[in-house]
Each structure stands twice: as structure tokens, then as C-alpha cells.
């Protein structure tokens, strides 16, 4: 199984296909006693990861305490730099007013209820992600569990993905981000100049059995993370029992972030 997936990977990996790096070490490894690459026993596994955000709970908390827990947690864990210049800012998770987040749902009378209401937004980890289609180096790809991942090593900074993403979920490093990171998380890398970045659904945390940082940080319980492939998961249940909306549903990208309003 291992072998096969490696080969598939090589097939899609345009650059690795040059075969300069991947092949030899692999053959050396393969020549020995079967090496094992494994998931951690604790790792969370799912078929289709998704998040349901109950905005009412969130707004309540925000109104009371001006809560930004999820944003801060995410950005500090992932070494996301804080750059004031809006043209150069980097963001994985942030808030967006209703009319920006859901421009297609906006009409004359909704305004009164939802006007300027801040929605928590991030990468939608779409089931049909346009960013993956356009990436020339396959640096952006979709995992089997639905997470739209970025391989920063491979990103050449062409920014096609940014053009393709209808949600503006991606940011580009115009310069070295390190001076803008207040306190580095030594467990996670930074990015470098010329690389695109975005929310990775905390892939590194899922691998060790932790939920995404934003979910964990939300004291209001507004953010719920789980597997839509599992009908008994909390997210599945929430979707069954609530009316939910998705951003720009009509574009057909099939986002996996759902909102309860």
C-alpha cells in the first residue's frame, strides 16, 4: 500500500518526477529491513473533516468580552506574522462582515438583522477546491480526509491559487515574515518570502490526536470540528438539527465550513 501511494505521489509530483531526489534514498531505504512510516496511535482519522460554526454563540461571546481567542490561538501556534499593512497582511483565520462573507445571500432586508455582523472565516477546505486544480507544482493538494494542504517546500509563489480561491483564504509573503512574528513557536516552522500560506486545518495537531487550535481555544463552544463521514459525529448531528449556510455555495466548491446563524 505504501509503495503504491508513493508511486501515485510521484506521478502527480511534477518536480519530484525529475527523480533527482526522491528515488535513490527510497531505494536505499527499501533495500533494508522494511522501514515503517506510521501514524501516531493517537492520530485523529476521518473521511471528511468539517467544521460547524455557531455564529450566535460566537457573537454573544464577542459582544461580552470582545473575544478573539480562536484567532490568536491559531496565529500564535502557526507562527503567522502580524503585519499591519492590509496589502501585505497574512491571515489564516479572521473575521469578515456578513455582506463580504456571504455576498450572494445578501438582500435588502437581511441587512437589518445581520448588517456588519462579523463572521469567523478561514480556508473552507472545499471538497472541490479550485486552488488545487490550478497549482502548477501540486504544492496545494487535497488529502484523503479532505484537508486542503499546502506543501510550503514546493510553493513557487506563482499565486495562481490566490486568484482561484473565491474566499480570499490565502495570503502571500511579500517579504520575510520572521521580523513580524512576536514570539516564535519553536515546534512549527515559519514561512519564507515568496510563499503562499493559509489555514491547514491544524493537520499537525490532528496527527497527534488534538483538535484544531481554534476549536480548542473557543470557550463558547461555537466552533465544532468533526468528521462528516461519520453520521454520529457532532458535526453531522449539528448539520441535521440546524439550518446552516456555506459561503458562496453556488460556486460549487462545496466548502466544509458550515455556519449556523
Amino acid at each position: 500500500m505504501m509503495e503504491k501511494s508513493r508511486r501515485d505521489f510521484l506521478k502527480i509530483g511534477g518536480i519530484s518526477a525529475l527523480g533527482l531526489s526522491a528515488l535513490p534514498a527510497l531505494s536505499v531505504l527499501a533495500g533494508k529491513k522494511q522501514p515503517a512510516f506510521k501514524l501516531s496511535d493517537k492520530a485523529l482519522e476521518g473521511k471528511r473533516w468539517a467544521m460547524v460554526i455557531d455564529m450566535k454563540k460566537c457573537w454573544e461571546k464577542q459582544k461580552k468580552e470582545g473575544c478573539k481567542d480562536c484567532l490568536l490561538a491559531c496565529h500564535s501556534i502557526h507562527n503567522v506574522p502580524e503585519i499591519d499593512n492590509p496589502k501585505r497582511e497574512i491571515k489564516w483565520i479572521w473575521t469578515e462582515p456578513y455582506e463580504n462573507a456571504f455576498p450572494n445571500l445578501e438582500y435588502e432586508y437581511t441587512k437589518e438583522v445581520l448588517k456588519d455582523k462579523p463572521f469567523i472565516v478561514m480556508c473552507n477546505h472545499c471538497s472541490k477546491p479550485p486552488c488545487v486544480r490550478v497549482c502548477p507544482t501540486k504544492a496545494t493538494f487535497q488529502r484523503k480526509d479532505g484537508v486542503v494542504m499546502m506543501d510550503f517546500h514546493r510553493c513557487i509563489g506563482c499565486r495562481y491559487c490566490m486568484a482561484a480561491c473565491p474566499y480570499g483564504s490565502r495570503s502571500f509573503n511579500w517579504g520575510d515574515p520572521r521580523p513580524y512574528i512576536k514570539k516564535e513557536n519553536m515546534e512549527f516552522p515559519t514561512r519564507t518570502k515568496g510563499v503562499v500560506e493559509k489555514c491547514n486545518f491544524c493537520a499537525e495537531r490532528l496527527a497527534v490526536g488534538l483538535k484544531p487550535a481554534c476549536v480548542e481555544a473557543c470557550k463558547a463552544g461555537a466552533l465544532v470540528f468533526g468528521d462528516l463521514g461519520d453520521p454520529n459525529s457532532e458535526v453531522s448531528k449539528l448539520l441535521k438539527s440546524n439550518y446552516t449556510i456555506r459561503r458562496k455555495n453556488d460556486l460549487g466548491t462545496e466548502p466544509n465550513i458550515y455556519y449556523i446563524i
Partner: peptide
Amino acid sequence: NEWRDIVVRENFRLFAAP
């Protein structure tokens, strides 16, 4: 290089040495 592909793209994070 091998590892980073395996980790990033296939999500295996543990290596069992010989």
C-alpha cells in the same frame, strides 16, 4: 527530503527505525 514528502503529503509522522 523523503520525510517531508511523507509527512506533508501522506501524513505519516513516525518512522520506525530498523
